[in-house]
């Protein structure tokens, strides 16, 4: 999650200004510390010596060290203003639209033009501008994927926008960056930047209706379909709940519970059995499944790719 490993135009623009300011700051710090060290070494009191000359000030000196910082600030202000305008510009035509809904404590991602809905793992094509529209139904969150750029708050009642073009395929981590309650620390996400062809394959997989599961997974699906799960979750062709994450391609995601755990049959079974034990304050209740039922449901969910 390093802010200095830039993987988008937005992040690189920021890094450009970051670098300038860091150098300027380092030089100023050096000047001040060197000055401090020198005066402390050079001007010591000697017992019995008379008081030093009682200099009260020096107008020219004071003027220069007022003007000098102002000029130095120009070095920072000019690139700052330039980058503000470049990064706040409206996105180019043909930008991919993604609706981001930050909720306690997970991320919902919808691609309206592609009829795709998913959660906690955002896929983007490399080299294409994306406009993220941020909103939320509960409290303020903040969308932050450091390698792809700066953060932007999710403010209920407002639409905030973030525009960027990821340039390098890879997997990037993000996390909520505005304190939002009990599991604020557990509201992570993954962003997978694919080469365009791979992204198209992913989109196609998202849109497909999952195949009928066989074996223990079938039992799991039966449990899912008959319990309260369907009230909160959507699985294409099975249920249409909107309170919790869309699970249509859950099995293909790399992490569970918004980046908390790797997505394996064991972790999923533990989660399904007792989410509250893993994620403090989570809204998903424990449904009183037995261990066997939980494993079956996990097996089913892992087939959803």
């Amino acid at each position: 999650m390093s802010t200095v490993a830039a993987r988008s135009d937005f992040a690189r623009e920021i890094l450009h200004v970051y670098g300038i300011i860091t150098w300027v700051a380092a030089v100023i710090a050096l000047v001040v510390f060197a000055g401090l060290a020198w005066v402390l070494l050079r001007f010591r009191d000697r017992p019995g010596a008379p008081p030093p000359p009682q200099t009260r000030g020096h107008t020219l000196l004071e003027l220069s060290w007022t003007i000098a910082p102002a000029l130095v600030l120009l070095l920072i202000a000019i690139p700052t203003i330039q980058v503000i305008f470049r990064t706040q510009a409206a996105p180019a035509a043909g930008a991919l639209e993604v609706l981001v809904r930050g909720r306690q404590w997970w991320w919902e991602f919808r691609y309206p033009a592609l009829d795709v809905a998913t959660a906690n793992e955002l896929h983007l094509p490399a080299g294409r501008p994306v406009q993220l529209t941020l909103e939320g139904p509960d409290v303020i969150h903040s969308f932050w994927v450091p390698q792809l750029g700066g953060k932007r708050d999710v403010v209920p009642g407002r639409l905030n926008r973030l525009t960027l073009t990821p340039d390098t395929p890879g997997e990037y981590w993000g996390q909520c960056a505005e304190f939002c309650g009990a599991s604020h620390a557990n509201m992570g996400m993954r962003v997978v930047v694919d080469a365009p062809a791979a992204f198209e394959r992913w989109v196609a997989a998202q849109r497909a209706t999952p195949a009928e599961p066989a074996g223990p997974a079938a039992a799991g699906k039966a449990i899912f379909a008959s319990r309260a799960c369907v009230g909160c979750h959507t699985i294409r062709g099975v249920s249409a709940g909107v309170l919790g994450p869309d699970l249509t391609t859950f099995g293909g995601r790399k992490t569970l519970a918004a980046g908390m755990l790797p997505n394996t049959p064991e972790t999923v079974a533990a989660w399904v059995k007792d989410p509250g034990a893993i994620k403090p304050g989570v809204k998903m209740p424990a449904l009183g499944l037995t261990d066997a039922e939980a494993r079956a449901v996990a097996a089913y969910l892992m087939t959803l790719k």
């Binding site: 802010t3 300011i21 903040s142």
Partner: peptide
């Protein structure tokens, strides 16, 4: 000096809330 860094919004967008 770290405050000056925060004064630049692009940089602050990485640094704030971190």
């Amino acid at each position: 000096l770290s405050g000056i860094m925060h004064a630049s919004p692009p940089v602050d967008l990485q640094q704030t809330d971190s």
